[in-house]
Amino acid sequence: MNILMISDVYFPRVNGVSTSIMTLRRELKALGHTVTLVAPAYDMGEAPEDDIVRINGRPVLMDPEDRLMSLKSLKALPQMLSAQSFDLVHIHTPFLAHYTGLSLAKAFNIPCVETYHTFFEEYLYHYIPFLPKALMRYAARHFSRRQCAQVDGLVLPSIAMDEALKRYGVRAFSKIIPTGIELSDFSHCDPDGFRRTHGIAPERPVVVYVGRVAFEKNIEFLLLMLSQLRHSIPDVLLIIAGEGPAEAKLRKTVEGLNLAANVLFVGYLERATELPACYCAGNAFVFASRTETQGLVLLEAMALGVPVVSTAVMGTRDILTAGRGCRVAEDNPVAFAATLQEVLTDSTLRARLSIEARQHALDWSAPQMAQQMLAFYQLAQQQFMRSAQLAEV
């Protein structure tokens, strides 16, 4: 197949959507398919790639890490890409990419599918806090119903996201296909080297958070939990790997809770070696986001054999409810701290969870998920052709 993907975000912008697109592109190309991606230009030294069309833009007002792609350049895409004979458009984000993807599919008379990566009902409130939360919830639900009805197929990364959209009244043709994990990328690491680089003693108890440092990730909850855990494990260290708009506020929270000696911000890490080493430097991986449509970082930690302690809310439930390689914690700081303390103080438990985690991650391999996506593409094509034939009658 010749697939055209479009997204409002991609590397070097680091987040779960970028990772999901990169993983799917790589697997589809490995299977012999052609994938062209339209994504923003960030002017951050990204290397040109023949199969990525970069669109110039400007920083987004409320989130300057992101880019708003140029409308003029987007409108020129049908003519620019007309000779490539695409079979299908796959949209990955609901902003300008959504409407441009619809236009491209119409111009080329091909089906259009979309992956619903972000739980906007909770996400929007964090970035437009001056509007009532009830209004934001209503707007997000209306927005989602409208957009989901405009595509020929909808990809959902988790059962929880499927349930949420059904509550909204979405009735689109859809399938649950999680983002797969490239197991080879998370099969080895150097935790001792990471600890040496950052001056962390080999015996010090360490917990790790990896992800965007954003308000919707609920990292402040982890800091409140840490202030409780410190009473029983005084030298515990929380590593926060990532960057984002919540960092300044979180640093102030660290100061206010007197946690400066217990928290280490390390920023974004290079994915090939530094990131796996960071995961493995932890005795446990911690997570408490309430807005995840899947929670890919949980699988990355598990693939490396790092026990996970996390709440199970929204998409993370699919990964955690089996109870393999993890401990599900209650959604309050005191109970979470107690669960984490059990894991950190019981080496036998950690060893068992580590083995379970690696086994569990095998069920989420990227090649399996890419095969499911291809099958869904073919179903979307068939449905598109049937609809076209009915319209001619």
Rank of each mutant, 00 (worst) to 15 (best):
L96H: 09
R25L: 05
A39N: 01
P178N: 14
N15W: 13
L31A: 12
Q368G: 03
I239N: 11
P234D: 11
D318A: 08
V38P: 01
R141Y: 11
P202C: 09
S70L: 05
L275K: 00
S85Q: 15
I181M: 04
P178D: 06
F376S: 04
D363I: 03
F130W: 12
E255A: 12
L340Y: 03
D318Y: 05
L362K: 13
P59D: 15
Y268H: 10
T34V: 14
P40H: 07
Q378I: 08
G323N: 05
F285Q: 14
N109I: 04
E121R: 12
I177P: 09
R290M: 02
G45A: 07
I181R: 05
F120S: 02
F86T: 06
A76C: 10
I355H: 02
E122Y: 10
N332A: 01
S73E: 15
E330V: 05
H142E: 15
F194C: 14
E121A: 08
L135K: 15
F173S: 03
Q147F: 03
M62K: 11
Q371F: 01
D8S: 04
H126L: 06
N258H: 10
S158Q: 09
L275G: 00
T311W: 01
D185I: 01
H198M: 11
F86R: 03
Q389G: 07
T316F: 07
R212L: 14
S289F: 08
A338C: 05
I128G: 04
P191V: 08
S354Q: 13
E392N: 08
A140T: 12
V53E: 09
E114V: 14
A97V: 04
A366W: 04
K72L: 10
M369I: 13
T115M: 12
S365F: 13
S82N: 06
H231I: 01
E243I: 12
V151E: 02
V9D: 10
Y138P: 00
F285A: 09
D51G: 03
L379T: 00
L250Y: 06
L74R: 00
I128H: 04
A303R: 03
D66I: 10
H231W: 02
A388W: 04
L28P: 11
C280D: 06
E356S: 08
A39P: 02
P367H: 03
L4W: 05
D63F: 11
A303P: 07
F384W: 12
K166P: 00
V263G: 03
T316R: 07
Y10L: 00
R317H: 11
L183I: 04
A281W: 00
R145V: 07
S232A: 14
A97G: 15
Y138W: 15
T197I: 12
A281R: 02
T273Y: 15
G325T: 09
L104I: 12
Q150I: 09
P59H: 13
L37F: 02
G325A: 12
C326H: 01
M44S: 11
V297T: 15
V334D: 02
G267Y: 02
Q378H: 03
L104R: 09
D87W: 08
E216P: 13
P202N: 08
A380E: 04
